[in-house]
Every structure is written in C-alpha cells, then in structure tokens.
C-alpha cells in the first residue's frame, strides 16, 4: 500500500496557493532583473558603473553587479533571494509540527501510517517545491533573456546558470532538512519557526563575516551558506563537489535526526 503518494499529493494541494504566489514572485523578479539589465546595457550605464565600482567589490563580485551577464543572474546571487528560498524551505519543512499542533496528526496517525512516512512526505514535498522554484527561476530568466536581451549583450553561459541553480538548490534543501529536523521534535510551529529563522539568520551573518573577516572564517564552516559562492561562479568557477557534498551532508544528517526524533516522540 503506497501511503506516501496521497500524503504528498495532499500536502502539495494544500500549498498550491502558496506555491503559485512564490513561483509568481520568483518569475516576476527574474523578468524585472532582465528588463533592468537590458535598460542599463542599452544606455551604456554598465561601463559607467564599472568605472565607479571600488576594486574590492569588483574583485569580490567578479563585476557581477556591473555587467549584463552578472546582472541577469542577480536572482541566483542576491542574498535576499537566498534567504527567501531558505524561508520557503523552512515553511515546507515545518509541516510535521504544524500537524501536531493542529492535532491533524491524530487523524493521520490513527491510520496504518508509519512514522517515517510523515518525515519522507515532507522531504519529497521539499524536493518538489525547491526544484519547482528553481525551475521557475530558470525558465523566467531564460525566457526573459530570449525576449528582452539586446543582441550585443554578453549572455551568461548555460553552465554558469546551471551551476548557480544547482548550488542554490542544494542550499535550499539543506535549510529545508534542518527545518524538518527541528519540526520533528518541536510541539509548536511558532517555536520551531522562530528557531529555524533565527538559526538561518545567524548562519547567514556568520558566513558573511567569514568572507571578509579572518577570525570568523573557520567558524563560518558550520554555516550552510558557506558552501554556496555565487560570485565565484559568476567569475567562472565551477560548482565545487566539496561544497555540494557538504550541503548534501547537512540535508542527510538533518533528515536522519528527523527520523530518529519523530520515531521516538509522543505526538
């Protein structure tokens, strides 16, 4: 008897409004970015911005903010987008605790449903939502460039876009995994959400500090954000296998913790 499928379908159906809103925002954001990049390119302002940009920012961003090629990938490299996607993943990952708080779990788990199914339902929904969000971003970005990019513009290579999307996807999954783990031992959605949100913010700040301040560099290795370097990729660096492995490890360990916690707890 396949019990995962109806639970995944039900979870996605409940979220359809949320998913439509999120994907619309992400798609609109990509289109606007391409449109703005086109305007700046056509008016020659990228050259002006390159001249005004301090060296350290130009070096750090690989001119990401001052070229058509970098600007259209703003949707993958901007920290606000990273936080936004992490927030989506956290909201999806909190489903187990939401069911416990509302007591819907009494109806679900009064059926012959194994506890691991609840955890894996959330993992599958997280995977689907994450890749749907990234696919939407990718499609809107490519569609925007196809429609709006000037012929002379230096478009980003597909390998760079794919690397950015993959890296961002693994980062989002890591945060979703952490949220599922926290949701699996919490009793209140608000508490779990606050813990996840605070942790994400603290890890983001830690990573940010680590990139500029040597004393924080070592400690920043505990932050999932440390393993996604969009500006390096904008400069042509490939997606590092080590970074992917670290993000996968964050996700896997979180899911394992969720498994154990949910299997042992009182619901």
């Amino acid at each position: 008897m396949n019990l995962l499928e109806p639970l995944v379908a039900y979870s996605l159906r409940r979220r359809r409004g949320f998913l439509i809103a999120v994907t619309s925002v992400l798609a609109a954001f990509q289109l606007i970015i391409v449109f703005v990049a086109r305007t700046l390119e056509q008016s020659g302002r990228f050259q002006l911005m390159q001249g005004l940009m301090p060296d350290f920012i130009a070096e750090w961003t690989h001119m990401g903010a001052a070229s058509f090629r970098g600007f259209v990938l703003f949707g993958y490299s901007d920290p606000v987008v990273h936080i936004f996607l992490a927030a989506i993943a956290i909201s999806v990952g909190l489903e187990p605790v939401a069911e416990i708080e509302t007591r819907f779990v009494d109806l679900l788990m009064a059926r012959p449903v194994a506890r691991w199914i609840i955890v894996w339902r959330s993992v599958i929904v997280l995977l689907l939502v994450t890749w749907l969000a990234l696919l939407t971003m990718f499609a809107a970005n490519e569609g925007g460039m196809w429609l709006l990019a000037p012929r002379t513009a230096d478009r980003p290579p597909m390998t760079v876009v794919a690397s950015l999307a993959a890296g961002l996807g693994f980062l989002t999954l890591a945060w979703g995994g952490i949220a599922i783990a926290i949701a699996s031992w919490s009793r209140r959605r608000a508490t779990a959400g606050a813990i996840c949100g605070f942790t994400a913010f603290a890890m983001f700040v830690l990573d940010y500090l680590g990139r500029f301040w040597d004393p924080a560099r070592t400690l920043s290795a505990i932050s999932p954000f440390h393993y996604f370097d969009p500006f390096g990729m904008l400069g042509g660096a490939a997606l590092q296998i080590g970074d992917v492995a670290a993000l996968v490890a964050f996700t896997a360990v979180s899911i394992a913790v969720a498994h154990i916690a949910y299997a042992r707890r009182d619901l």
């Binding site: 409940r14 069911e99 194994a114």
Partner: peptide
C-alpha cells in the same frame, strides 16, 4: 502499531482539521 491501526477507526475528541479542505 501499524497492524493495530489497520483494525481501528478513530474519532478524536478534538478534531484537528484544515479549514481549506
């Protein structure tokens, strides 16, 4: 537990239902 719950119909005292269903 799963074998047991396969034989049980349960109505909780406090029904937790999602209002959008």
């Amino acid at each position: 537990g799963r074998q047991v719950r396969a034989m049980v119909g349960y109505m909780p005292g406090e029904l937790g239902l999602y209002p959008d269903m």
